[in-house]
Every structure is written in C-alpha cells, then in structure tokens.
C-alpha cells in the first residue's frame, strides 16, 4: 500500500474502498472492525468507527476522525518497528 497521493488514480474510478458489511452495527455498538484492508480509503461514513488494522503481525487500533478522511487505513497502522541498538552479550 502506498500512502495516499493525488494524481495517481483516475478521477472517474473514484477512491478505492472495501465495503464493510458490519459498518452500521459497529457504529452503533462501538465494536471494532478487524480488517486487513490496509489499502481501503477512509470514507466520510467511517468517521467514529473503531478499526483494528492488520500490520502484518497483529491488529492495531485506529479510531477514525474527520481529518483522516481521504487517507488510507494502512497509513495509521505502522508496519515497522523503530530501530533501537541493543548491545550484544557475547562479544
């Protein structure tokens, strides 16, 4: 998944998104939606939904706010660990 950029996708196609069948019930009950669709564009009707977005290993929580519309779900679920130097025990 590449981060959202303009001018990459034709306008007539519209944004790429995945339909979540449980979206309405998730909004009502505030239950998280577990998904692997990192490339799904966040739509205005996703606002307020809690997603658990897969990062390749586990599901990270993403609560959609108004500002996130137009970005993709995967952008909010980091796939890489921050590098930290560890001294080796056996020299």
């Amino acid at each position: 998944m590449r981060p959202t950029t303009t001018l990459l996708r034709s306008a007539w196609k519209g944004p790429f998104f995945v339909a979540f069948p449980s979206l309405q019930s998730a909004l009502r009950d505030n239950t998280p939606i577990f998904t692997k669709a990192r490339a799904c564009t966040i739509l205005p009707n996703h606002i307020g939904v809690r997603f658990m977005v897969h990062n390749g290993r586990d599901y990270l929580p993403v609560t959609v706010t108004e500002e996130m519309v137009g970005h993709k779900l995967g952008e909010f679920s980091a796939t890489r660990k921050r590098f930290s130097y560890r001294q080796t025990k056996n020299k």
Partner: peptide
Amino acid sequence: QRLREIGTYRGRRHAAGLPVRG
C-alpha cells in the same frame, strides 16, 4: 504538522527524519 497529528505514516517519517515517499 497535520500529518503528524492524525498519526499517518508520512507524519511519522517526517518526525523521524527519514525518507517519506518510500
């Protein structure tokens, strides 16, 4: 600043001082 505040990958890369566009 907006990218950082909403917690996107691009904002994180900016904060880390690493290449942003892959």
